[in-house]
């Protein structure tokens, strides 16, 4: 498989084309994904989410820089919305990241949502696999500007960063139920602005009300100041980087990473199944407990989601329809 080899060798053109083929639902792309699946699972995946204009792209740019200083290769997947009227999209996240455009250790790829509602693109899971198979050490996934319910990032990232900014009034109250629950790390961005202290206090109060199991993880709050003051900004990003690292270490040492991987793998398998078969088959799988057994296989890299979905379709399709 020629394309698979190129991707493992880090060929950016081949990788970007494969991501495009996935976005465009070209059937051949599935074969390549099957081929590279065994080579995935090594990269650290970090999700960055928050409302439009909160400063996600600028933070991603800072994190790219911080990782490059530690000689880690970086993949960035930046998602922006597709127009529901024309199907077109303006993908403007990488404007903030262009200082890394010529660095061969950084691969930035913009994705349009194409109708997906969870804050990501349907192609994002496979796009992560592509960057992972290329050997990127860390993959930063920036969601669209989110409101309350776009929480799909939790199915893909080891660590989720929720970016908030002061001056949004009682939005804290409004978003309490959705996006506030998914943060592993909170960023109070633009913290030089009025209201940053209040926002931080409100967050702390909210966290005080959320029970943390003994030895569990309480999401830290990182304040990040004006990005136009490069030295201070870099220091703040350094703190954020350290928290991301700590969270990853925590997941590994507490063995919670298994849960995250399981959640991620379960989600992925679900998507693949859905595209091959219909709801009644899924219901049957859940009730027989077969779904759990398949997740085990994937975690052991004994198979890939597409192959498992096809097996199930062959086995069950006649009975259900």
């Amino acid at each position: 498989m020629e394309i698979g080899k190129k991707i493992k060798a880090g060929d950016i053109r081949a990788a970007s084309r494969l991501i495009r083929d996935i976005e465009d639902s070209i059937p051949e792309a599935k074969f390549t994904i099957k081929h590279i699946f065994p080579y995935t699972g090594k990269a650290q995946v970090v999700g960055i989410t928050g409302s439009p204009g909160a400063g996600k792209s600028t933070l991603v740019d800072g994190l790219v820089e911080a990782n490059r200083k530690r000689n880690r290769t970086v993949g960035v997947l930046a998602v922006d919305p597709t127009s529901p009227f024309t199907g077109g999209a303006t993908l403007g996240d990488r404007i903030r990241m262009q200082r890394h455009a010529e660095d061969p250790g950084v691969f930035i790829r913009s994705l349009a949502t194409r109708g997906s509602l969870g804050g990501l693109s349907k192609a994002v899971g496979d796009a992560i696999h592509v960057m992972d198979a290329m050997g990127k050490d860390i993959i930063l996934v920036e969601t669209v500007g989110t409101g309350q319910q776009e929480v799909e990032i939790i199915n893909y990232a080891h660590t989720v960063i929720v970016v908030l900014v002061p001056g949004m009034g009682d939005e804290i109250q409004a978003i309490k139920a959705g996006i506030m629950e998914i943060a592993d790390i909170f960023v109070v961005n633009k913290s030089d602005r009025e209201g940053a202290g209040k926002l931080q206090r409100e967050l702390m109060a909210m966290l005080d009300m959320s029970p943390v199991a003994a030895g569990g993880w309480r999401p830290p709050i990182v304040t990040i100041g004006n990005s136009f003051k490069p030295e201070e900004f870099e220091q703040d990003i350094g703190k954020l980087s350290a928290r991301i690292h700590e969270h990853y270490e925590f997941l590994v040492s507490s063995d919670l990473i298994g849960d995250r991987l399981r959640r991620k793998t379960m989600h992925e398998l679900n998507e693949a199944l859905r595209s091959s078969i219909l709801e009644p088959v899924l219901n049957m799988l859940v009730s027989t407990g077969e779904l759990d057994r398949m997740v085990e296989k994937l975690l052991k890299k004994e198979s890939d989601p597409c192959s498992l979905a096809e097996e199930v379709a062959r086995k069950y399709l006649q009975e259900c329809i």
Binding site: T82, T86, G88, A89, G92, A101, E102, S110
Partner: peptide, 25 residues
């Protein structure tokens, strides 16, 4: 017009533009 448009902003070098075009396919 229904295209997916990547806008890279001002002050770009030709090398940045070429490299971004390849990354974005």
């Amino acid at each position: 017009a229904g295209f997916e448009v990547i806008y890279t902003g001002c002050h770009q070098t030709p090398a940045q533009i070429a490299s971004s075009a390849i990354q974005e396919d």
